[in-house]
Amino acid sequence: MSRAVRFAPLALLLLVIVALVWRLATPADTDVHSTLEGKRVPAFALAAGLPSKPAFSSGDLATGRPHLVNVFASWCVPCVTEVKVLQTLKDSGVAVDGIAIRDSAPELADFLLRNGDPYERIGSDPRSQVQIALGSSGVPESFVVDGKGVIRYQHIGPIEQGDVPMILSKLEKAR
């Protein structure tokens, strides 16, 4: 048996140990990063979710200022608490738009009446087509879109009070 063969297992072991040490030293990043970040919002044109509000299309996003696009629904329980946080964001000057998933106008109106209405525009996405195009898999989710209509950040799950500074800084960066 040649020398090289006899030392091969040892070399392999070292390689594996190095990889394992590296992993122990740098714990896995388990956050999901959207692959749409850095890409333009897919083109869409949604009918108005409420007769009293304007309709919502992708063209409304490339207006020179950043938007927060909130994917929500009146039937979604976490959205009830999130909408109050969105109100505080709106109060600090953020443009918040909504995409209502599989919703109806009367239920939407009722939801906004009870919980507050931070939305400038609400588009109705009755069959989740725009939601899927955005790569969103549930409600609520939110997208920070810059003034050119490029997605800068995707937030999965409700935006909570503690997330507000982070969202504001993402919006600031997207300016």
Binding site: R3, F7, P9, L10, L13
Partner: peptide, 9 residues
């Protein structure tokens, strides 16, 4: 394992 492999080599 390292010791065993060294021994083997």
């Amino acid at each position: 394992v390292g010791a065993a492999f060294v021994l083997f080599a």
